[in-house]
Every structure is written in structure tokens, then in C-alpha cells.
Amino acid sequence: MDAFTTHTGTAAPLRRSNVDTDQIIPAEYLKRITRTGFEDGLFSAWRKNEPDFVLNQPQYADASILVAGPDFGTGSSREHAVWALLDGGFRAVISPRFGDIFRNNSTKAGLLTVLLPQADVEALWQAIEAGPALQVTVDLQARQVRYGSTSIAFEVDDYTRWRLLEGLDDVGLTERHLADVEAFEATRPSWLPKVQPALPA
């Protein structure tokens, strides 16, 4: 994945809570077997059916930071939701609360998810709406969101931060510990199930 250190860009205010992954990318786009090219599915129902939808407004067309209400990315485990946001030009999403699986997926694909309290999200929404050209910086190195004269600290665990800063792939990291895996495997009870080939009728 691409490393994430710091990113500055304009932001889009998505004043909605419970934005589930079916809204981020509907199931029909999940039939593809590629890992890129999902931008056409991003919020496709809202883009199509709601002329006023925030991403249909020209002032937010180039936004690269999405600022959403609580419970963003709930529902389905589809990592395609993360890919669609990245393919759609977003590098970071800010919300007071994320769906667990979505947040976890975001760390695997290099999309930064930033937890900020609702009051900070509300203030950021107002600042963006007052001036959509507002430059917002999401700084993973310093663990800060900055805009205008405002600077807000956010929390991210050291390990996830390190992985994102370095753009590291988990499989490679785990392969360094294969001896531990082998040692664990030697202790597994023999009665644990092994998938049988097609069972006889």
C-alpha cells in the first residue's frame, strides 16, 4: 500500500450518520475481481438520486478529505468501500465513530481514518461550509488535524501509525514470525476439524 505521512487538501462535509458500506459502494459494484477502478461506485446511489448530495456540488468536486457523522462505514466487511474512497480521490476520512471492520480495512489499504469528537467534526463542517476552499491538513506524523488557526490532536496507536507511515504490508511482517506460527501449530489438538474433500454421497 502507499505510505501515508501527511496530507493537505480540501474537504467535503458529509452531514450524515450511519453511512453504511452499502452506501459507500453498493453491492452491484462488488462483482468485479480487480482491486482498482471502483470510483464509479462511490456513493453512486446518492450521487445519482440526490442532485444536492455533497459530492455533486462543484465546490467539493476535488475534495480529498471526507468529514462524516458518527458510525461511518458500518455494515458489510467489503474492503471495496475503502478502495472506492481511495479511487475517488480521498486520502482520509474524519468521523466521531467508525465501523470496526471498515476502520481495520482502511489501515490495510492506506486510507487514514481519523477519530474526532462530534463537536470538532461540527466545527470543521462549519468551517468547510463557510469556505469550501479551506485547506485541511491531516498529519499522521504529528497526529494532528489542522485548518486555519485550529489544530486538533487525534489518537492513533503507535503500531498502526508506523505501518501507515512506512506503507508496510502485514503479510510480510507476519512472515518474520513464522517460527512462532509453526510452534503454535505443533500444539493444536488433533481433533480440530480439517476440511474434507467432497464428501461421499
Partner: peptide, 21 residues
Amino acid sequence: AFGIGTSEVEHVLATQTLPQY
């Protein structure tokens, strides 16, 4: 038992493990 994303599917296929908190 829990759901995972595609990157984690790849990780489990390759290593039969998952990094977890």
C-alpha cells in the same frame, strides 16, 4: 468468529493468522 476485509483474507490464506487487538 468475525468478519474481515480482503487484505485480511489474503493474510489468513498466506499465514493462517491475523494481527488483532
